[in-house]
């Protein structure tokens, strides 16, 4: 029983990280049709920005306070990077989807290499607030506290994005654009400005995901973002593109499947079962991806 509770909570925590990483990706892909390979670099940028910030702040400050500042910096860095990438690299290739993908591929290779050149390929340890390293006993299970943080942040992000999508003018344009961006333009709405904002939003979410993932892993490393990115891709495909609720459900399912399989089968099987899940979803429900062709 306590094992199961532990697995469910850790799986939920992992799913929360996947959701934070995938939400921006799903929005960008749904609205613009851009498969953003650079999303991993955005995450890495956020992780390093937070790590550098925490290192630069006075050591007397509590770790938790420095982490909060680090998160804020990471979100800002992610947003700025996303904004710049969209304006400088993506926008000139509007409607050339393949080339947009290629540019983000180049960016992801160059970004990881740059981080490797500056900070080295080896993981650098990050400071973790004492409480987040501790555990809380619930129903006999010793649950790592940091998972609660990830879940809380993910729920807040989910609620915030839902509010944005359904209560604001920007959200209305995004929802319409996910359905048919050409028609949004044909109604006289400058959809490019929306693209830029969504890319910046996605970058901010990626920055956040990067910091939290580095907390989860206990370290920062150049390739960290790329490994998280692959699971984010899987979540986006399973969840159906452009659907925030679908992304959330898929993220939780993927996180749970991974944890449960790792425990009940063997360590490492979890990652494989996720890919197997993807294959199953594709075989049983290929139409869920209708919007994804093109």
């Amino acid at each position: 029983m306590s094992d199961l509770v532990l697995l469910l909570v850790t799986g939920l925590g992992l799913g929360a990280l996947y959701f934070i990483a995938a939400s921006g990706l799903s929005l960008i892909y749904g609205l613009m049709g851009v498969l953003n390979f650079a999303h991993g670099v955005f995450m890495t940028a956020g992780a390093y920005a937070s790590w550098l910030t925490m290192g630069a702040l006075p050591v007397e400050w509590p770790v938790a306070v420095r982490l909060v500042v680090g998160v804020l910096v990471a979100v800002a860095v992610g947003a700025v990077v996303g904004l710049v990438v969209e304006v400088v690299l993506i926008r000139p290739l509007y409607r050339h989807h393949i080339q947009q993908v290629l540019v983000t591929v180049g960016l992801s290779l160059a970004g990881v290499a740059a981080a490797q050149g500056i900070w080295g390929a080896d993981p650098r340890p990050v400071e973790k607030p004492g409480w987040m390293s501790g555990t809380t006993v619930v129903l006999g299970a010793r649950l790592p506290n940091d998972r609660f943080v990830y879940v809380l942040v993910a729920v807040a992000l989910f609620a915030g994005l839902l509010a944005l999508l359904h209560l604001t003018r920007l959200g209305l344009v995004i929802r319409a654009g996910v359905e048919n961006r050409t028609m949004v333009e044909a109604l006289g709405i400058n959809v490019h400005r929306t693209f830029t904002i969504v890319f910046a939003l996605g970058g901010a979410a990626a920055g956040l995901a990067g910091v939290l993932y580095s907390q989860y892993a206990g370290s920062v490393s150049p390739a960290q973002g790329s490994s998280l990115l692959i699971f984010a891709f899987i979540v986006v495909v399973i969840g159906g593109t452009g659907s925030l609720a679908g992304t959330a459900v898929a993220a939780v399912v993927v996180g749970l499947v991974q944890q449960l399989a790792n425990y009940y089968a063997a360590s490492g099987v979890g990652d494989l079962s996720v890919v197997l899940l993807l294959a199953l979803v594709l075989l049983l429900r290929p139409t869920s991806l209708k919007g994804a062709t093109a």
Binding site: R175, A176, E185, A186, I189, V191
Partner: peptide, 30 residues
């Protein structure tokens, strides 16, 4: 396209192309 439309050309496409997931009101509020 957006500038042309704001310049005064309204376009009703073949097959309507309304936003099926949006309400009638939301379609108009766009």
């Amino acid at each position: 396209t957006a500038r042309i439309v704001r310049g005064g050309i309204g376009y009703v496409p073949e097959d309507r192309e309304v936003f099926g997931g949006l309400t009638v009101d939301e379609n108009l509020r766009l």
